[in-house]
Design a protein around this nucleic acid. Structure first.
Lengths: 327, 327
DNA sequence: TTGAAAGCGCTAACAA
DNA sequence: TTGTTAGCGCTTTCAA
């Protein structure tokens, strides 16, 4: 790999001049041309490691997510990446697998690699962001809120729970269960609260807790709990799924039982990107994942550029796509 | 951020000794303990950028894929990551978006960040791997084969096409169409060839070309072509989908037309991770994506460790999951 | 086993 | 506008 010195020698200038050419500071036209020529000849690529070491910051932003196999997060990643690469930044995608220790490792890497900033969907309440915040690196929390005073982008989770539930009520369903993600995750709790609001308003006497279940945010979680609900003496006639994967699992089980929606009503919070159902059979409260990524990336780039307003949290609105096929 | 010098001063040793402690070379027990103490006190994290600059290689491997939103590739990424992180490497995931220029940028980054090696599912035939190969960095091609003489891990694509088609024939379907990915991508061409083999063997007189269609490897691609096939004067009674997303699109369209499988037979090459169909309605030739990632990562780590055998290509076997519900 | 010192490739302060 | 030079934080010879 050619270095700046090789280029300098070939072009008959000093290394500093070569550096200037590649960093856009003032160099005479002739020298600039000579440097570009030499660089092309030598196939010169500036060494980012050296630049990073010198500058104490790199044009890389870290994106830490809890589940790389969840389309919700990859859609978000796309949003981050589009904005970042537009601005000349590359994105390093890290999968914490919802484990706090893996997450901590990636945060350490972000520090020791001098990344410019980090966007994180935390693995849990216990996530320790103090060390990286201590370095002064900008950090934006996405999807889940944190106990730290930092920028954030979240969904209108409670509203999502409410509007999913209302849609099912409007379609005429009577016993509307809820399958949420882990109780200790704030997004899960909020969505459940929205469901509870809507349900108790419509049916003040309903035994809400009999219809509430928590699962993992995965297909298996949705499957298990849906089976459980169907085995009830008085099973629900509709269900709200707390995220996309839970929705998939629940629908799979319903299908296997011959209860394809809308025989049993289903409303999913999130999206069903790879559904093979007729799109009109299920109500979806779409969470704008890509937009969340775009927003977070813009906030982060702003901070990197020096924006020092007080931290703020952006709440993104959902979009209701009600099922159009009644029972 | 504390440096090795701060730790050295606090521990009363030289910077070299601190380095040795963190790199496992011989240091006396007492000094070693003193260094660890000091490091803990100062919250010391070794600066990877400096280490990388000095060592001319980092414990990072690049993984470049053409579509981060395709579960096939994220499943593979999981495999890569599990092996890599086990070995102390981190994985940088880069999305080329099937564009050769973005891919070239990421390859440049891999070089200029001194990454230890790269695993790549190339964007196209035109991918230029020469520059990175010139640096001597190990490179493993996954999913798609290349024109370069390098290590590779691919699926048994032709066999996949054949066994998907045979399964449909065995189920009694007569007019079996094929929706493949872009013709110029070798995996797509191979799978189509496998379909052609099986079909012409079973029905020597069939007009194969009338039943063959190429699409993009995306849900939309599958949708468009499926609509096209259904509009035919003599539409097919079954279809082989060249990848997971095409399969999803095709099934969506069939469902919308009231032709839910197995009314029209469907065999998908790949997986349907988030399908909401009854699992027995569709034939799946499962491609072991995770295993592909695991294999590629092991090969790459082997090369990084110095393995210099001639390049080899591993072909992974598929697993047929035939539909169990007949028409 | 330990320390001194050079240098990885680049940028930026300073001087010309 | 250009060159000289110091130094980012680490590893690794070499010598003790």
């Amino acid at each position: 790999m050619a270095t700046i010195y090789d280029v300098a020698r070939l072009a008959g200038v000093s290394p500093a001049t070569v550096s200037r050419v590649f960093n856009g500071t003032s160099v005479s036209v002739e020298k600039s041309a000579a440097v570009r020529d030499a660089a092309a000849q030598l196939n010169f690529v500036p060494n980012r490691t050296a630049r990073t070491l010198r500058r104490q910051s790199s044009e890389v932003i870290g994106l830490i997510i809890p589940d790389i196999e969840n389309p919700y997060f990859t859609e978000m990643a796309r949003g981050v990446e589009d904005v970042a690469s537009e601005a000349g930044y590359s994105v390093v995608l890290c999968n914490s697998d919802a484990q706090t220790d893996k997450e901590a490792t990636y945060l350490q890497i972000a520090m020791s690699e001098n990344m410019s900033g980090v966007i994180i969907a935390t693995a849990s309440e216990e996530s320790d962001l103090a060390p990286i915040l201590a370095t002064g690196r900008p950090l934006v929390a996405v999807d889940r809120s944190t106990t730290y005073d930092i920028d954030g982008v979240v969904m209108a989770n409670r509203a999502a729970g409410t509007s999913a539930t209302r849609a099912l009520i409007d379609e005429g369903y009577q016993r509307i269960a809820y399958i949420g993600g882990p109780e200790h995750i704030d997004t899960a709790a909020e969505r459940a609260a929205g469901w509870r609001d809507a349900l108790t308003r419509a049916q003040p006497d309903v035994d809400v807790d009999a219809l509430l279940r928590f699962a993992t945010f995965r297909v298996d979680g949705g499957r298990e709990v849906m089976e459980e609900l169907l085995a009830l003496p008085e099973p629900p006639d509709a269900v709200v799924a707390g995220n996309n994967l839970i929705g998939v699992g629940a629908i799979q089980v319903l299908t296997e039982h011959g209860l394809t929606p809308p025989k049993v009503g289903v409303a999913v919070i999130g999206s069903l990107p790879f559904t093979t159902l007729s799109p009109s059979a299920v109500t979806v409260v779409r969470l704008p994942a890509r937009h969340m990524g775009v927003t977070a990336a813009k906030m982060l780039l702003g901070r990197i550029a020096g924006d020092d307003q007080p931290p703020r949290t952006v709440v993104l609105r959902n979009e209701l796509q009600a099922a159009s096929v009644a029972r």
